[in-house]
Design a protein around this nucleic acid. Sequence first.
DNA 1: CTAGTGACTGTTT
DNA 2: AAAACAGCCACTA
Length: 102
Amino acid sequence: MSRHLAFYAAAQSVPEGRVATYGQIAEAAGFPRCARQVGQALSALPADTSVPWHRVVNAKGEISLRENAPNQRRLLEAEGVTFDARGKIDLARFSWLSAEEE
DNA sequence: CTAGTGACTGTTT
DNA sequence: AAAACAGCCACTA
């Protein structure tokens, strides 16, 4: 049993059209301060996974990936998440927890 | 066992 | 505001 599964469950808890930071996922999974492990866990996900890993972004609301970054951005846009000119998400509106109210 | 690394975060320059 | 530093935990060599 790995903590990865807890991270996956937390990631799946993120509703469509919303995003969560690695720290939030780690905390929700019961492993605060394990944001990096969330990244590693998600990096181990298969291509056909049902986990919405694309809804997980860093604390700046930006995509930390490199090769899959454009892909993730497209997936989020397909769910209604918008990016600004800098390629960042407005966490004040799309953040999974806190500050989701206008 | 020790050392290096990473899809991170918060504080300090 | 952007970059550098340090702290953090799990995995790999």
